[in-house]
Each structure stands twice: as C-alpha cells, then as structure tokens.
Amino acid sequence: MSGRVIVITSGKGGVGKTTTNANIGTALARAGKKVVMIDTDLGLRNLDLLLGLENRIVYTIVDVVEERCKLKQALVKDKRNPNLCLLAAAQTRDKTAVSEEQLKEICDKLKEKFDFVLVDCPAGIEQGFQNAVAGATEAIVVTTPEMSAVRDADRIIGLLEAKEEIKSYKLLLNRYRSNMAASKDMMSKDDVVEILSAELIGIIPEDTGIITSTNKGEPVVNDENSPAGRAYRNVAERIMGNDVPFIDFEEEAKVSTKIKKFFSKFLKKGKEN
C-alpha cells in the first residue's frame, strides 16, 4: 500500500492549521480510511490537545529519530477511532531536532501502512516549514479572508510551486463569515480564489463550536449539527475524490436574514395591533 502524504500549511499562524488537521484526519478516519497525523511543530505542539490525547503521549517524533523507540511505539491511537493515529511533536526540543531527510524517511515508512499521512506544519517559512514539506506530495494551504493571511498564503504557494515533490496544492478558506462577505465588509471566497488563483478544497464557516470542541478535546467533525463540522466532512469527501458541492453560505445567510426580517415585521405588526 502506498498512502498519500498531505502537508497542511499556511504561513501565518493562528489561521487554523492544527484545527484543520485534527478535523480532516478525524473525518477521513470516520470514512473508514487509515490515517496518521504527524505534528511537526517541535516545541509548540498542539495537535494532541485538539484530539484530547495529551495524556497518552509517551514517545514523540524526536524519540523516533534518536532511536529511543520504534516508530510503531510512538503512534498514539485515537480514543474513539482505531483508524486514527498521532505521532506527536516533542515539546522540549526545537526545530533542529529533526531534519528534512529524517522526516521524509518517517513519511515514507508511514505511507506503507496508512491511507493518509497528514503533516501538521508549523507557522512561518523557515526550516520548520521545509521539514514538514519534505515528505509530502500534496499540500493544503489554509487561509482566512483577511489580508495578512492571504498575503502569507501567497508566499507559501510560491514556495510550494518551487518544490518538485509537491504535485498539487489546494486552498482551504477558514473562518468564513458569510454575512460579512455578503455585505461586502469582508473579502468573499471569489475574491480570495481570484487573488491567489488556487483551487478551493473547502470553505469552513466561522463557528463558535470550534472553541467549545477544542475545550473538550473533541474535533468538531464529530458534532453532526455543527456547520464547521459539516464543511470539514465535505473537505474529507473531496480529498477522497468525491465531488461534493460547496455549501453556499452567502445564500444561506441571505435566506436566514430574510426569514428574520419577515418575522420581525410580523412581530412589529402584532405589537401595533
């Protein structure tokens, strides 16, 4: 078996790389795929927290590289889904503890056993980024409809295009506020796609459920009622090659404001009478 190695990257920090990683990984595993996630953000690990696995980590990627354990021993199984594993970053070491070659070797070994290897990339464009990208052949660039995030995404896309190993990259637009896009107070998905001239793999709406699910260490894709969870499940479907239409959040927002307006008028009339 030869699985796919996908790096999830963004340039700018705080746009939702790790959240995206946890949710896409969980969604793919729910769909029956064997998935392993690698946290390469040495010294600033967080993927374990989002998955609620922080208390189960014994060995990290640095222990594997420095041969204190076997690769298999360092893989932490998810609480709910046996298809899902995590290779955690070391919290006490810095970016120099693992090299590009070592990461590539780990990715190559893992893709023999798993359908998907998702690499969580640190923010920035320095060595940490170079390491994370080393073993991947596909990339997902996470951005938000804000100027700074789009600018950094453009930089990352330039760097990815220069890498021969990266065969394709897709754009994931996170924290999308359809009501603000509809009122032209924020860039729309079309604006971002046009500026970056990249193909979209998903649009994730801004959702307070992300915060509460992070608090609980449970990815939001497991919540059937969450809009962000639904959007992440769609992204996983598209990764697996299924053609799922994009949810038109603008239209949904317009409809819901129309309904609200209708009812508020109705209520006002009721009061007047």
Partner: peptide, 16 residues
C-alpha cells in the same frame, strides 16, 4: 471595505 482590502492586497502581492 472589502474592495479596499482587495486592492491593497493586489498591490502588495505584486511587489512580493
């Protein structure tokens, strides 16, 4: 305001 953002971004990205 989003048009302002789009235009500013375009200029910045061209320079980048």
């Amino acid at each position: 305001s989003k048009d302002v953002a789009v235009n500013r971004l375009r200029v910045v990205l061209m320079q980048d």
